[in-house]
Nucleic acid binder design. Structure first.
Lengths: 183, 183
DNA sequence: CTCCTTTGTGCAACTAGTTGCACAAACGCG
DNA sequence: CGCGTTTGTGCAACTAGTTGCACAAAGGAG
């Protein structure tokens, strides 16, 4: 229910083609609302049909030709409505926690290596976020938009920090465990 | 792809009927893998068809009659296989962060109230987790299973702690913002 | 100039999750 | 006893998200 709104936000920040959107989803909005190019194209079609966005006029529109979209007033209004509306947090789902819990009954054999791998992934993600922070949010520059976006980035940083720390703790505890748990 | 494994885990911890599972999902496993009773019943059917679980024999089985399931060896093996297999973290999706980012372009009107509401929800969840910790994990009792389950619970506690703090910070920044941002 | 890779767009089929409803038995109450 | 509420089970339809593939144009390499 939120992909169209993610796209509207991205397009308001800068009108783009499907592929450009896909790229930007990989680097920024996608950090908390990921989407594949297939989803994005499909959704662009719907948004256009609904009159929320329109294709920027080009010379010869054709398949395999860049097509940029911009947000129409109706789209902006819809985004504003959605942003302001009260919404319940969606339930989280975390496979790793589930597996850890499962390993309490079927044994921890094999999971440790994957914990290490996840730790490495989270470390890398954290480094990437910190890079972005250094680049996009230097000490000065405190416009209202910057403050909001920085807030979002900080959430990402702190979440990755949490996972990094938690996984480190978990691995430490694994060291103290008898070899493969129960089962 | 993980609901069947969540159910297997829960059933290994204790054989249960569909409704009992639903209740336990609401209080424990569901904290990181939520499911409705409809999903659970459907999945129980599939798991039984696959020979992973079986219904415990009862006197007169009938609709509207409690039916308990237990895990068969094949089910346990499947769970062990899945737990040990390497898996990539699934992308997170967070509506609130998305809305905050959107509010940087369409204005913050209306979102503050919902931030407060979320803060309250996370505080409550945190309190619930801490209650569980006090009840189920008193200082002694360090069996291997307990350690693993405690680790999972601590992840929940720390995540809620993070959200509580982050939302508090965010609301503070909102106080300093000019009235409704851009737009 | 032809073939191969990259860029960009898109459809179709599938899987997972949600919502809405239905139905039966058991329980409590006037 | 008859009637509404709670408990327990379940189907069907829908929505969202994923996976797999296809096709066109453009650019570079032999």
């Amino acid at each position: 229910m939120s992909l169209p709104h993610a796209i509207l936000t991205a397009l308001l920040e800068k009108p783009s083609s499907g592929l450009e959107l896909t790229r930007r989803f990989d680097r920024s909005i996608g950090y908390f609302w990921s989407a594949t190019h297939q989803q994005i194209y499909r959704e662009l079609g719907k948004l256009e049909a609904d009159g929320h966005i329109r294709a920027l006029p080009t010379e010869q529109p054709a398949r395999g030709q860049k097509k940029s979209y911009e947000v129409l007033p109706a789209g902006r209004a819809e985004l504003a409505r959605w942003t302001a509306a009260s919404q319940d947090p969606r339930p989280h789902r975390d496979t790793l926690l589930l597996r850890l819990r499962a390993s309490a009954v079927v044994g921890t054999e094999g999971i440790e290596a994957d914990l290490r791998r996840h730790l490495e992934l989270h470390r890398r993600q954290l480094a990437e976020y910190e890079e972005i922070e250094k680049r996009d949010f230097p000490p000065g520059r405190d416009t209202c938009e910057d403050k909001l976006r920085h807030l979002v980035l900080r959430a990402g940083i702190e979440l990755e920090t949490f996972w990094t720390r938690w996984l480190t703790d978990a691995l430490e505890e694994f060291g103290e465990l008898p070899d493969s748990g129960p089962a």
